[in-house]
Design a protein around this nucleic acid. Structure first.
Lengths: 156, 156
DNA sequence: TTATAGAGTACCGAAGCAGTCCTAAATACG
DNA sequence: CGTATTTAGGACTGCTTCGGTACTCTATAA
């Protein structure tokens, strides 16, 4: 199972690209080229991000997008929420008392703990940390990297 | 956005029901009644859980299902994985190097941290904690509960 | 005034999910 | 030994949602 939708994933990539060049104003087409994503999809994502108040848009010729705040102040949770909506583990976490099993479902209270863990993980990382510059800085600090050990298991 | 699929959610409910009565052998129809879920769906879930080695099945008349291990030894992560497959935040977390953007995508290394957080949260809770008995025990420990403050926000 | 670029909306196709059904195999009971 | 019961393991289907596209409108710079 995959947690993030493709679009949310792309959204983070686009936002990160924006964060990598904070000074410039970038239009959707350029961003699409740089991220190798379809132009139309990028435009859609940027609209969602603008709607969420994460980026500011200027229309017209020479228009484009720009982060509304410093990259350090924008969490991944916000980016995801702007595109996919609020994050919840189960149906009832989002919908609340609509669930017909509310009265006798013993599992419900516990999802909150898991929900919070996910939220905290997503909120604890910001766009600045995602940029290549941040990765370069990490390399400088951890020079003796053994190899390309990507090792993220997730064997099915 | 909702993280768990409906089926995974249901799977936990069914498994919890099984955990609440560890001694008995229960068939799919009974479990369906007790959880108010469609019989066929419950059967499907139990098959998946059996496939994952979480429950043992005995066929034939008077057959049924039973937890393969003590409830304390079965984590929610296992239940979810048995039904929805391995847990990953993004496509690349699961698929690995198939992603065409692997070479220049700066966000990739960071997803692991989030991924691990989710995995840890799911792995850190077991079926025994989900049962009504466990909830009752909690109530005994925290008597001054102010009210029915469900307060799990997630406003969209 | 015109070209450019975002805003908003509507739409379509594909994919995945939830749910159903059917046949085969195993076991208890008469 | 035969029958009823129950799980195993498929295949199949309808539907929702997601990803992606197209079109029109509005705002801005030159």
């Amino acid at each position: 199972m995959i947690i993030l939708s493709k679009l949310a994933d792309y959204g983070v990539i686009v936002a990160t690209q924006l964060a990598a060049h904070p000074e410039r104003q970038t239009n959707a087409a350029t961003l699409a080229e740089e991220t190798r994503l379809p132009r139309t999809t990028v435009a859609k994502l940027l609209k969602a991000l603008a709607h969420g108040g994460l980026v500011t848009a200027s229309r017209g010729a020479a228009g484009g997008y720009r982060l509304a705040r410093p990259a350090q102040a924008i969490s991944i949770a916000e980016v995801v929420a702007a595109i996919d909506g609020a994050i919840g583990v189960t149906q009832c976490t989002i919908h609340g008392p609509d669930c017909t099993r509310t009265d006798f479902c013993s599992t419900k209270p516990h999802w909150k703990r898991i929900n919070d863990a996910v939220g905290t993980a997503l909120a604890g990382m910001n766009l600045a940390e995602m940029t290549p510059a941040a990765i370069f800085a990490q390399w400088m600090k951890l020079p003796p990297k053994p190899g390309p050990t990507d090792g993220q298991g997730a064997a099915r």
